[in-house]
Each structure stands twice: as C-alpha cells, then as structure tokens.
Computed example of a mutant assay.
Amino acid sequence: MLFLTRILPSFLVAWLLTFTLASLFHSQYVVNQLVNVGVVVEFADRVNLTLEDWLGLLPTYGAIIALALTIAFLVTWFINKKLKAHSTGLFVIAGIAAFATALIAIESIMNITIIAGARGWGFYLQLVAGAIGGYAFAKLIKVFENIKLN
C-alpha cells in the first residue's frame, strides 16, 4: 500500500514536473541559440516550439528521465533511512546526479549530445530540472505521508 498511496503518486508528479522543466529549458535554450545568430522568433513560435518539443521528447527523453530518477530515488530512499534529517537535500542531489549521469552516459555512448538544450549552459539548466524534481519528490512524499486514507 505504501508504494501505491505514497511513493508512486509522489514519483509521477515529480517526474512530470521534472520532464516538463527539462523540456522547457531545452526548447528555450535552442530558441535562444537561434536568436543569437539573428533569427527572429516570435512569441507564438516559442510557445508552439515548446509544446511540440514537450510532446516530441516525451516518449524518449521522458522515459530516460523516468529511468534515471527511478534509480537515483531508489538509491536515495535507502540512504535516507539512515539520514532522515537530510532527506530533502539528498533527493535534490539525487535529481542532479540522475540528470548528470544520464546526459553524460548518453553523450559518451553515442558520442553526441542528443538533447540540444543540454549543450553549454543548457546542461546546467537540465541539472536544475533534476534538482527541482528531487525537491518535489521529497516534499510530496511528506505530503502523502500526512494524508490519512480510510
């Protein structure tokens, strides 16, 4: 019951938030690179690109993020049993580590950065998405813990 009532809902919300931020950061990084070389990008085009990227990245990058966060949060769950006082910080670090590991591993294996928004300073924005996801997961676990199910 713990898994279905507390862990899974927390994970799904944290994953969705994390993926949405990572996709948003990716899209805006790419648009910014276009603007830097003189391409005029209207606001409506930015919004369209962002929504299309979200849908387009969901099956691949979304799955990679889900797998990376699952592994990172699972390891952190066991570490957290010994260090409960630092649970939020541990999950923030886990989110950062999940993204860093996934992005570096993909680049090492494929010898290319497949997420264009993870190049240059965009890499750090992806880590921010992971940190926010870890923070959200840690806080949501506590929220669902306090909800009493009948």
Rank of each mutant, 00 (worst) to 15 (best):
I104Q: 07
L8K: 09
F19R: 02
Y124F: 14
A14I: 06
K81R: 15
K82Y: 14
A129M: 06
I79K: 15
F19G: 11
P59L: 14
G89M: 05
T60M: 13
A68D: 13
F19I: 05
Y29M: 13
V47C: 11
L51P: 04
Y124N: 08
L74R: 10
W121A: 10
S10V: 04
A136S: 12
S23P: 07
N36W: 12
G95N: 09
I7Q: 13
A116E: 08
I71P: 01
T60S: 14
G133Q: 12
N32K: 04
L21K: 02
A131C: 03
A22W: 11
I71T: 14
K81M: 05
T101H: 02
E107T: 09
T88D: 11
T113V: 11
M1Y: 12
A63Y: 03
L58Y: 03
K82M: 07
R46T: 10
Y135H: 13
S23I: 01
R119Q: 03
I96R: 04
T60E: 11
A63T: 15
G120D: 08
S27I: 05
I71V: 15
N150V: 08
L34F: 02
F73Q: 12
V92A: 06
K81W: 13
T113L: 00
L8P: 07
I109R: 00
N150G: 00
A116V: 04
V37I: 13
N146W: 00
L24W: 11
F99L: 15
A63S: 15
E42T: 07
T88W: 06
F73I: 00
I79Q: 15
L140A: 03
D53C: 02
Y124C: 01
V35M: 10
V75Y: 06
N48P: 01
L103H: 05
A66D: 07
P9M: 04
A98H: 00
L12D: 12
V30Y: 02
W15C: 06
F73L: 10
T50S: 09
A63W: 09
F137Q: 04
I132T: 06
T5D: 06
F137S: 04
T88A: 08
L21G: 02
L127A: 03
N80F: 00
G134K: 05
I7C: 00
D53V: 08
L49W: 14
Y135T: 02
L149R: 10
F25T: 08
D53I: 07
K82H: 12
I112W: 01
D45L: 07
L74V: 13
K142M: 11
N32H: 09
